[in-house]
Design a protein around this nucleic acid. Structure first.
Lengths: 216, 216
DNA sequence: AAGTGTGAACAAGTTCACAGCC
DNA sequence: GGCTGTGAACTTGTTCACACTT
C-alpha cells in the first residue's frame, strides 16, 4: 500500500463488497470492471483505479475472480474478524438499530446496550439486559468494544461520546442530530435523515419552480 | 444563481442551517465566516464561497446577519414550506423513523404509513392507521406526497420505490441495504449503517496493525 | 479595521488511453 | 482479443490572497 488512500475510495469499497457478495450468490465466478461498473453505476476506470491502490487483483484479458476480490476486500476493510459494538440509548430508534439483523451477518456483534432511563435499565432487549450508562466507562475497561452506536438525545450525545472515547472505543456511529467533537484518533460517521431530506428539498424546490415558470 | 452548483455545496447547506439555528437560539445576531467556520470545523473561505453561489448575504467588515442567513438558506433549500412524506414499511425501524420528532419541526409532515403485513395494516401508529401498501399508488394519485421514506426489507425495496415513483414521489430516503434504481428526475439518498461501519473498520484495522507492528 | 466576495492558484478526484499481459 | 493497471490529461472542488465595502 504505497501512498495515502483517499477517503472517498475507502467509502466505495463496502459498496463494491456488497455487490460482489450478491454476484457471488448468483453463482458468477469472474467479473470485469466493465460489468461490475454497470451493476454499480460507476465507471470501470474508477473501479480499476480504486482497487489498484491496494494491489493487482485482476487478470488481464479475463477480469477479476469474484471470490478473490471478496477475500481481498474483506482483508482490506477488516471484515475478516468480528467487531464488538455497544449501543447507547435504548429508545425506539436504539431498539430498532440494536435489533437490526444486518449487523451480525457482517461481523458486528452487539455486546451490550445502555440507557440512562431507570425504567429502561434492566429490561430485556434481544435477550440481554439493558445496562446503566453510568457503568459504561468501567464496563469498557473490563470488556473492550471497538465501536459505539449512539442513539441518545442530542443533548446527551457529546457526553456519551466522551465516555465512549475515554473507554477506548475508536469508531462511533452517531444517530444524533448534532455535530460532535472527537479526537483525531476516533472515527465518526453521522446518520441524520433531516439533513438528507433538506438537501433533497433543494432539488425538489427547483423542479417545482421550473415547472411553474414554464406554466407562466 | 449563475452556473451549476456542486452537489457537495448543497449537502453542506443543511449543516450550516442547523448550526445557524442553534446560534440564533443562543441569541447571537451576527456571525463572521471565521466564527461559523470554527463552529463547523470548516474553513471560512469555504463558507463564503458556498454562500456566494447564491448571492451576497454578508456585510464587509461585519459578517452575516444570522437571521438574514437563516432566511436565505430556508429559501434556497425550500424549507419555507411544508413537505408531505409517506413512510413505507412499518416494522421496528419504520416505526422508529415515523415517530421521530425531528421531522415535524423541520417542516416534514408524515401524512401516511404503509405496510404489506396484514397483522400491521390497520393498526394504530402515532394516532394514524397503517394502510395497505397495495393502495399506495392510487392513494398517491388522490393525495400527493413529495417524499417517500422506505423502511421495508431489501427484497421489497425496488418494487416499493417503483410504486412511489409512479405515484409522483420525487425524493426518496432509502433505509434499505440495497442499491436501488430511480429515474434521473427522482432524488435518492441512502442510509445504510453497515456501509458506514465497514469503512470505519478499515481505519480501525490499520491502527491495530500499526500498533502491533510497533510492539513487534 | 474588519471581513466579504471572488478570480486565480492549488489540490483532489475522475476519466482517458494505451502499454503490457493473459 | 480482451481486459487490467496506471501515468497523463482533465475535471471538480478547495484554499489563497487581496480588492473592495462598510
Amino acid at each position: 500500500m504505497p501512498l495515502e488512500i483517499p477517503e472517498v475510495v475507502i467509502d466505495r469499497l463496502p459498496v463494491y463488497f456488497r455487490t460482489l457478495t450478491r454476484i457471488a450468490d448468483e453463482g458468477r465466478t469472474v467479473i470485469s470492471s466493465q460489468e461490475l461498473g454497470e451493476e454499480l453505476d460507476v465507471t470501470p476506470a474508477q473501479i480499476r483505479k480504486d482497487l489498484s491502490y491496494f494491489g493487482r487483483f485482476g487478470k488481464q484479458g479475463r477480469g477479476y475472480s469474484v471470490q478473490r476480490l471478496l477475500g481481498e476486500l474483506k482483508d482490506i476493510l477488516g471484515l475478516d474478524r468480528r467487531w464488538r459494538v455497544v449501543v447507547v440509548g435504548i429508545g425506539r430508534l436504539g431498539r430498532a438499530v440494536a435489533s437490526y439483523p444486518g449487523f451480525e451477518g457482517q461481523g458486528f456483534d452487539i455486546v451490550a446496550r445502555y440507557d440512562a432511563n431507570p425504567e429502561v435499565i434492566g429490561t430485556n432487549v434481544d435477550g440481554d439486559l439493558v445496562r446503566d450508562v453510568a457503568t459504561l466507562e468501567s464496563d469498557l475497561r473490563e470488556n473492550h468494544a471497538e465501536i459505539g452506536i449512539v442513539t441518545v438525545t442530542a443533548s446527551q450525545a457529546q457526553d456519551v461520546v466522551n465516555v465512549l472515547t475515554r473507554g477506548g472505543v475508536r469508531a462511533i456511529l452517531n444517530y444524533t442530530p448534532t455535530g460532535i467533537q472527537v479526537p483525531p484518533t476516533v472515527e465518526i460517521k453521522h446518520i441524520n435523515p433531516v439533513l438528507f431530506l433538506q438537501s433533497m428539498t433543494y432539488h425538489l424546490k427547483r423542479r417545482i419552480d421550473e415547472r411553474d415558470a414554464l406554466r407562466g
